[in-house]
């Protein structure tokens, strides 16, 4: 997958969810906007529907009532009558006609094009709540910073209304194009997965050179930043990687590192959108994993921030 898939005109973006009343995702009451498209393809991705930049169609097998209205409208013969699979992804051109007729919500559009005005209108539905709580909007994905030219004017409007902006990034994005919008962000949550370039390549599909460069660039730009480490047992929770990550954070003059425990819910989402699922099955991070990792990182003089509520196992 490559970032070139993302529409670069800056006129519209593909959004796969706007989640309201997010309260564990930055200060106050927030809405989180999930933008579609990411240059990485992490093995454990929690939001795999954010990987590909184009809208796609998900199939929720448990909702299907087998009426096959979808079959009647499909012009490409891409509907298959398999219990778990409904779409022949090779044939499908994602026209979305089947989604329109699926009243049971078994076939669903993942991702829709939105203009900045449309997105702003959706965000502003909860303006009063942002204001009363000191909250705002979190841009997540996918990789939101692939949409730099799209986001910059939107960010300017939101800032003008005093709305707090958080950006969650995987770190690989065209720095120059993203800089104008980054300058307007109040907080950047920056994920660091693995410090070793080869292991990074092995688990995310890309080396980490650009990511570390963007990290340094962001630090230099002075925007408030919190690095985060998605803790994936047996992938990046070894002492070497944890220490290297902590040292990298320290070298860049930062003091804290947040830990996000891995959960296995992403695999089900992959199945729904027809993304390949590769072994191995990674187990979720337990509170013990977190505690152990936290101890190691603390030894490197970095403060660890753990999630408020423990993730359900």
């Amino acid at each position: 997958m490559s970032s070139t898939e993302v529409e670069t005109s800056g006129k519209r973006a593909v959004v796969f969810d706007i989640q309201r009343f997010s309260i564990h995702d930055g200060p106050g009451i927030r809405s989180t906007v999930f933008l579609k498209g990411c240059s990485l393809d992490c093995h454990w991705c929690h939001n795999p529907e954010g990987i590909r930049a184009h809208p796609e169609i998900a199939f929720y097998a448990e909702r299907c009532r087998r009426c096959f209205e979808c079959e009647k409208v499909c012009r490409l013969d891409a509907i298959v009558r398999d219990p778990d699979v409904r779409i022949d992804r090779e044939r499908c051109n994602r026209c979305g006609l089947c989604v329109e007729v699926c009243v049971f919500g078994a076939l669903r559009q993942v991702g829709r094009f939105m203009t900045a005005d449309e997105m702003e209108a959706e965000i502003l539905r909860d303006l009063d709540f942002y204001r009363s709580s000191g909250g705002g909007v979190t841009f997540s994905g996918g990789e939101p910073l692939l949409y730099g030219p799209f986001l910059a004017p939107l960010f300017r409007n939101l800032k003008g209304m005093g709305i707090h902006i958080t950006v969650e990034t995987a770190g690989e994005f065209p720095f120059d194009a993203a800089e104008p919008c980054l300058a307007l962000a109040d907080l950047v949550l920056f994920d660091l997965k693995l410090m070793d370039p080869e292991r990074h390549q092995r688990w995310t599909g890309r080396p980490n050179g650009t990511i570390l460069e963007c990290f340094r660039g962001l630090v230099a730009s002075g925007v408030a930043m919190l690095p985060r480490l998605p803790l994936v047992p047996e992938v990046n929770d070894d002492s070497d990687n944890l220490r290297a990550t902590a040292r990298f954070v320290r070298e860049n003059g930062l003091e804290s590192l947040a830990l996000l425990p891995h959960h296995a819910l992403g695999r089900e989402k992959r199945r729904r959108i027809g993304l390949p699922i590769e072994p191995p099955d990674l187990r979720p991070a337990t509170p013990d994993d977190l505690a152990r990792a936290a101890e190691i990182i603390t030894e490197e003089a970095i403060r660890v921030i753990l999630p408020d509520a423990p993730e359900p196992a």
Partner: peptide, 11 residues
């Protein structure tokens, strides 16, 4: 029940 307990983990 408004599920917002899990932090949004984008990895």
């Amino acid at each position: 029940t408004y599920a917002s307990g899990a932090p949004v983990c984008k990895v």
